[in-house]
Write a protein that binds this DNA or RNA. Structure first.
Lengths: 218, 218
DNA sequence: TATAGCAAGTAGCAAATTAATACTAACTTA
DNA sequence: TAAGTTAGTATTAATTTGCTACTTGCTATA
């Protein structure tokens, strides 16, 4: 029997195992910037430092369920877009013990944000140049931003960052922020024309021409 | 309580933990098809069934290292393209116990394939309609193929499936198989022109015009 | 030693998409 | 009523992609 075969048949309880956690990168767009929810750590290690919200995975819940739980516990939110990001397995991620962290990211429109003293949004741009973020969470956030940047162009994830009813200038702004570049108005509209439908309503109270309100198809 | 005191009192073993494994999806292109390496399971569960090669993650190795180890143990290969795919955390993936599997995929040119009786390549197309694949490995393979299909168009992963020296018809065929569609010769060449450089060599022994041999830039 | 067969490789145009600019429309405020 | 401001549309240029037809260099065979 090879070593590998031996390992596969062992009684799992006799061996040391890593802990498995889920960390959540909750993105929103606010003040023309991509932002992420960070909590203040209340325990060692990294006490007092900003960190991603996370939970340990329980034996009776799937990873997706753990991610949902983290989302709900920390934000009260439900039914928003989320997806697995990457699994981080470095040896010294946590000084207490070996922890493998399965990261998820979620996208939420600005309006739904329930901030508290312990849980605040910070611009990604700012986070990435700070030195005080707990664990490897800065790296996770950077990776998440990259994933979003890629997916924006070939999926509809941008719609998850906008309310059900939105204007095209609003939606375009989201695309621009995620992609990190200006887009041409006319071209942008041609491209998403088949993914949306117009309502009979318009914005009001603006100093200029009102813009039509749209909804996503399906 | 100081940080030091806290670390001393923290006993990570009081909680039950899932086991963590790494499963490897080794892709190659052979006989004009995308194929995957499967091993025959020699133990319960799913004894005798085809499964992805995998190992349990050791406490002293990272996930990437475990994936490398699986790759090397099962194939003797080293230094080939590999990347984390997805982490599978369903409750009943394995009847023995809760196992969380971090899947990786790797790409290898056909020439380097070391097959044995226990380790053979199978066409993905065929695998996906079989019912006897162990665990949730069929799903993992399908997911891997999807990932590749996406990444082909915006990265250079296709080059990992071809030897260092290759012809353009050869490379084009790889793209076509990964994308699942025919490409136009002239356009294909324009598109990858800046990623390759020509050598002074040509194929020989063909019944027709020889094709020039190229290499990837960088 | 032609010439037919065959895949490699190139030229070039049509169609569609993307880049870019300029315009018109609808509102508020002075 | 005019100026300011952003929404929305029209239009053209540039680039990319879709597609067809051609030329090239080899082998096999007549």
């Amino acid at each position: 029997m090879t070593e590998e075969e031996y390992l596969k048949t062992y009684d799992s309880s006799e061996f040391q195992k890593p802990s498995v956690a889920v960390d959540l990168v909750l993105f929103t767009v606010r003040k023309e910037e991509l932002q992420v929810l960070l909590t203040e750590r209340e325990q060692y290690p990294y006490i007092g430092r900003p960190a991603l919200p996370g939970v340990f995975v329980r034996m009776e819940e799937t990873l997706d369920e753990a991610a949902q739980r983290a989302l709900y516990q920390k934000t009260g939110l439900h039914d928003i877009y989320f997806e697995q990001l990457y699994t981080w397995g470095g040896l010294d991620r946590d000084p207490r013990m070996r922890i493998i962290s399965v990261s998820y990211y979620a996208l939420v429109p600005e309006s739904q944000i329930p901030e508290t003293e312990q849980k605040k949004f910070f611009p990604v741009r700012e986070i990435l140049q700070r030195e005080d973020i707990a664990f490897d969470h800065r790296e996770i956030i950077a990776y998440g931003r990259e994933r979003i940047r890629n997916k924006v162009s070939y999926t509809d994830i941008a719609f998850s960052l906008v309310p059900e009813e939105f204007t095209l200038p609003q939606l375009q702004k989201i695309y621009e922020i995620l992609l990190g570049q200006k887009l041409y108005k006319a071209n942008f509209r041609k491209k998403i024309a088949d993914k949306i439908y117009q309502t009979e309503h318009f914005t009001s109270g603006t100093k200029h021409r009102p813009s039509r309100i749209y909804r996503k198809k399906d």
